[in-house]
Amino acid sequence: SEIVVAMYDFQATEAHDLRLERGQEYIILEKNDLHWWRARDKYGSEGYIPSNYVTGKK
C-alpha cells in the first residue's frame, strides 16, 4: 500500500472527507478520482483527501 505525507492541513467539510494534519502519514486506499483519493489515517479513520495536499513518502 502507498504511504503519503500531508504537506498542508485540510479541514474535512463533508462527512466522507478525512482531515489532514501537516506532516502526518496516510495510507492510500483508492485513487479512482484524480483530485480526491480515499485514505486512512493512523487512528483508522477513512475518507477522501485532496490529492494535491499530499506527497509520496521519501
Rank of each mutant, 00 (worst) to 15 (best):
E14F: 13
H35C: 15
Q24W: 06
I27V: 13
V4W: 09
E46A: 03
A15C: 13
I49M: 02
S51Y: 07
A15H: 11
A12R: 06
S51K: 07
L34F: 10
W37C: 05
K42V: 09
R22M: 12
P50A: 04
E21L: 07
L29M: 07
A39N: 01
Y43P: 00
D17V: 15
Y53A: 09
A6C: 06
Q24M: 10
E2G: 08
Y43Q: 08
Q24V: 06
M7L: 15
Y26I: 02
V4E: 01
R22L: 07
E21I: 13
W37H: 03
T55P: 02
G44E: 04
L18I: 06
I28A: 01
L34R: 13
A12L: 04
M7Y: 05
N52I: 09
E21A: 05
Y8E: 08
E21N: 06
A39E: 03
H35G: 12
D17S: 14
G56F: 14
L18Y: 02
R38K: 14
V4L: 05
R19W: 07
E25Q: 09
G23F: 07
K31T: 05
Y48A: 04
A12C: 10
Y53L: 13
G47E: 01
A15R: 10
E25F: 11
I28D: 00
A6L: 03
Y48S: 06
R38Y: 15
A6S: 05
Y26T: 01
T55E: 13
V4D: 00
E21C: 10
T13F: 09
G47N: 00
G23P: 00
R38F: 15
L34H: 12
F10Q: 03
K31L: 04
E14R: 14
R40E: 04
E14M: 13
W36K: 09
Y26V: 03
W36L: 07
L18Q: 01
G44A: 04
R40F: 03
M7G: 02
R22P: 04
H16I: 08
K31A: 07
V54T: 05
K31E: 02
A39P: 00
I3M: 08
R38V: 11
G56C: 11
S45G: 12
E25N: 06
K58Y: 15
T13L: 13
Y26L: 03
L20V: 04
G23K: 04
H35I: 13
L18R: 01
M7W: 06
K42W: 05
L29D: 00
I27C: 09
